[in-house]
Design a protein around this nucleic acid. Structure first.
Lengths: 317, 317
DNA sequence: ATAATAGTGACAACTATTGTCATGGTTATT
DNA sequence: AATAACCATGACAATAGTTGTCACTATTAT
């Protein structure tokens, strides 16, 4: 085998075995140990992060870093990857221990000049914004690890009611609108709850046995907005909207699917909502003022009236 | 230079010039043309997508695809890149013409086995969610292109008041909370406005001369929430917050920096706000109900009272 | 101590790489 | 139709690089 090809192959082999000895490689490639040593040095010079230890149980290792063999990306693909990774800079916490900037640097460095120029021009003209929060979420990596390995954790959580310990078996973590959430089976409630990660004040391994039935659950099969299994009774919602009201509701994630627009631009909103949403909806529709007229359910109308009377008291009629 | 190194270098050179002739390369590397031909064939066999055309003005070309030479990513970096790119699947519209999935496929394919395994496990347990909107934004690529090249466009925009044509010079586009926005100098207003890209119904090149002073503006130097140059007079805000109020305000992007927390969990909010924000703030603080007591400015209190009286009329006291 | 491992240097044998030359083919330009 | 600018391939001797072997050193776990 010609040397140049051998080097490429060796790159791959070395990547897969993380640990190996010179003798092993020599046998595998059918060359002398001396040559293997020479080759490994060349790989080193080419940037493969090898290091070696002498003595029994010694050998070569590839450091935590790995090599990706030459990958052919189209220009558009490279750009997409660049900007996606660039967007990570908006996150104060990530579940990976990484300065994503170092990865970007490498990526960027190896791009053909003209692609790099194009990226430079675009860099200050496209952005994927995520609301930046000041509160960090230090336990993301631990929670994710527990989800992957299906371990039970004991977390110190600050909910509305105050701080408390709970045993949870994490299903997964996700970020949305600048916050990180952890969806987890909670033993004390015997159901799945969502926790905001920045309100988790401590995480410890727990001796509790993990529930095997939770293992097969994951984020893809879950609706990230509601806890499954908590099938709440739904009640009917009916709201009249002005033209402005229509626009505002279409801009809201949860409400957009329910909005019906009439020809004149005004419209209505109809759909089924869980009863537990009433407090939120009351606030929401009060915020819309004249642009929304809630008609049903009566409970929502009552709630709005009640809130109004409190407010009137507070601010003086 | 040893052949193996020459091949690596040639990979890079060939990547940068998209078009080249055998003679050029021969001179550049100080080798014979015959050797260049042999090398190019090897590169071909190694996967570099070369093709050649004979005759005058012929020569070699690298197809649209490019090669990235071996890049050393740490495991964590590779994972971060993977998930960042994976997150793009939540977007219905992107300014790049790409199936980011193809790039991901390649990336994934070339990873060492155990990293791939780790990603597999994590894939369904981490996510970067972006609200998925039904409305697409078909002109993103055009708008971005105009921003990069500083061209003037004539857009057909649907604002509150209805549809109208306007001449704009885009500064950049960004996505936030599921929508794409385009920040652009608008000739008819002689100021910078932000447009929601899904409300842009048509985009045409305009013969208007671009303003050179806009060229130097970009998204990084802009506050994405406000138009620059519009230095509005600020007025003082003072609000008392209950414990719940503190939590709610800390969860809100704009208000979080102003919140002061006291020992008992309750707190206050103080800061300067532009007068134009009063309508928004009125809605916001009404939504907080008893958990917020606005004290200053008086204009805000008045506005709240006014809104309340309208609401009381509407829903019956 | 011993055995297992990496690391270096020297050198002859070997092999691959290279340049040159010869030849042929395609295509745009004149 | 001639020409010039390209790519393409084969043959072969000169050269340059690669390889294996051997001899030696150094480190470390057992």
């Amino acid at each position: 085998m010609p040397k140049s090809k051998r080097l490429m192959e060796m790159m791959m082999v070395v990547n897969q075995k993380r640990k190996f000895t010179v003798r092993e490689l020599a046998q595998e490639f059918g060359i002398s140990q001396r040559t293997v040593l020479r080759d490994l040095q060349e790989l080193s010079e080419l940037g493969v992060p090898l290091y070696s230890e002498v003595g029994p149980h010694g050998g070569y290792r590839v450091l935590k870093e790995r090599i990706l063999p030459p990958i052919a990306f189209t220009e558009e693909e490279a750009i997409a990857i660049f900007f996606a990774t660039h967007a990570l800079r908006h996150y104060t916490s990530l579940p990976f221990e990484t300065e994503s900037s170092s990865a970007l640097g490498k990526f960027y460095y190896y791009m053909p000049e003209d692609v790099r120029a194009r990226i430079d021009q675009m860099k200050s003209r496209v952005d994927f914004v995520t609301p930046m929060r000041q509160t960090g979420s230090p336990y993301l990596a631990l929670l994710l690890d527990a989800a992957v390995q299906q371990k039970v954790l004991s977390i110190d959580y600050e909910s509305r009611g105050g701080r408390s310990e709970r045993e949870v078996q994490p299903i997964g973590i996700y970020t949305k609108n600048g916050f990180w959430y952890c969806s987890a089976y909670t033993f004390s409630y015997q159901s799945i709850r969502v926790y905001r990660c920045d309100r988790i004040h401590n995480v410890l391994p727990s001796p509790t046995e993990p529930l095997p039935s939770i293992r097969s659950l994951n984020l893809d099969t879950m609706d990230l907005n509601h806890s499954p299994g908590l099938e709440e009774p739904k009640i009917e919602l009916a709201v009249e909207l002005s033209k402005e009201g229509v626009e505002l509701c279409e801009a809201e994630i949860w409400s957009a699917p329910y909005v019906r627009k009439r020809e004149d631009g005004a419209g209505s909103m109809e759909g089924e909502i869980p009863r537990s949403e009433i407090p939120y909806l009351a606030k929401f529709f009060i915020g819309l003022g004249q642009d929304a007229r809630v008609q049903r359910p009566q409970e929502l109308v009552d709630r709005i009236r009640q809130m109004l009377s409190v407010l009137v008291d507070q601010y003086g009629g």
